[in-house]
Nucleic acid binder design. Structure first.
Lengths: 233, 233
DNA sequence: TACATTAATATGTAGCTACATATTATTGTC
DNA sequence: GACAATAATATGTAGCTACATATTAATGTA
């Protein structure tokens, strides 16, 4: 360690977090300017900035140019959810992956999909219903709508051979993602598609993604009974 | 825009992502060194570094000192899940929040909890069973274990008045979080606690957190029928 | 040839100057 | 007092030098 002790952005982040957690700064409070923190920690403004960016990303504070930094009023537990490509998930379980395109058609977005995307008017979309299988048994059924204005090239993809899920993860990055997760009893249609019993507890994941302001896809994925979504981070 | 056109780390990130998505670089491929990218983009290495950090964070590439940058073999859809403090979630729905401590006791971690934390031996933990209510109706039942070696101060908290959930979000940051989400039919015990019908489809969220290597808490939260976890980002 | 030691390397970071920009505060005008 | 215009401000970023460090490659030794 040199005479000039160099500050760690990590230790500065942790010090600021500690001041928030011990209520030196409470919810809604303005924090000192980066410059002021730099002076009091004896480091560079960019080091404070690096620490603050991390705190903002983890949901503890919010930042605004000129407006300054504020402790968030609504602290949350933030976790990163990694949603795997279904084929890789199945293969990682040691099972054999199968895929069936049930039907696809171009149609205007339904009211539910318009609501998910917050669209004032219907847009032309490709609706894809497909079944993912593990060892020839139904694994996940997905009902997906893809916006043709944002992803016109999806019409050239052979979705009998490759799932839209996989194509989109590989080809269409998103910048925003809404998630709705819940349990519901299986309907007769669910039971037919998933070969389960009506009334079974089914895990449902609805996901809507955008790139910038442009809607990409909105899907409802219904998993077979017993499915668990597991993520580490 | 000045004569010296300044590069945006965002546009560099997007260019690199495009090269990955169009298979210029495939899964497992090594990317050029930051220095090389800087030369070819005509910008600074730190600008490339900033772009790469974002790509790493979003799960597209992985970085190693000396080892370089590699396209990940297992691309994922990554979403940030914001798990709210239950009281705020209830209040945001316009309902009145209620909280009941059912029981708490100090006991050695159970085998299931040891497995969640990957512990070779039992640790002394505080087990807390509690019920969150909305408008006097059961909302979420949580069975939580808190590691007393990591969070000894939890024994001084009056958990009849404040949920462990809320205390921990406010006082005990975590650096790692494992999640397991699933649906299952309600057991007779679930039904009694949640005042639901046995067999109802229940959404279950298991969450285990660490600070560094130290285990913090592991809980199983069982939501009332119809509950939906919604997150935007 | 196997293993230990040392050197090299590519990313990670601290700090600095200078500029960019979204926001907020102040001033001017009616 | 309300609104528009302008100025000020606090964060965000580009690029640079220098140093730190985890890893990989090369060299030395038995």
């Amino acid at each position: 360690m040199t005479d000039k002790q160099r500050h760690s952005w990590v230790s500065i982040r942790d010090s600021i977090r500690e001041m928030i957690l011990n209520s030196t700064y409470g919810p809604g409070d303005k924090l000192p300017r980066d410059e002021e923190f730099a002076a009091s920690f004896g480091c560079a403004r960019s080091t404070v900035h690096r620490a603050m960016r991390d705190l903002a990303q983890s949901g503890l504070v919010e930042r605004r140019r000129k407006g300054g930094t504020m402790v968030r009023r609504d602290p949350v537990t933030r976790a990163t959810l990694n949603i795997p490509i279904t084929r890789l998930e199945v293969e990682q379980k040691g099972s054999t992956y199968g895929y069936q395109l049930i039907r696809q058609s171009v149609q205007p977005s339904s009211p539910a999909i318009m609501a998910n995307f917050d669209l004032p008017e219907a847009r032309p979309m490709l609706r894809v219903e497909a079944l993912h299988l593990a060892d020839s048994r139904p694994y996940i059924f997905e009902d997906r709508w893809i916006c043709l204005e944002t992803v016109p090239e999806i019409t050239s993809v052979d979705l009998t051979r490759e799932s839209a899920n996989e194509w989109l993860v590989r080809n269409r990055p998103y910048s925003r993602c809404d998630l709705r997760l819940y349990a519901r009893p299986g309907t007769p249609i669910d039971s037919e598609v998933l070969q389960s019993t009506p009334g079974d507890a089914l895990f449902v994941m609805e996901r809507t993604t955008w790139i910038g302001e442009a809607p990409i896809t909105s899907l409802c994925a219904v998993a077979h009974p017993g499915y668990q979504l597991f993520t580490q981070g």
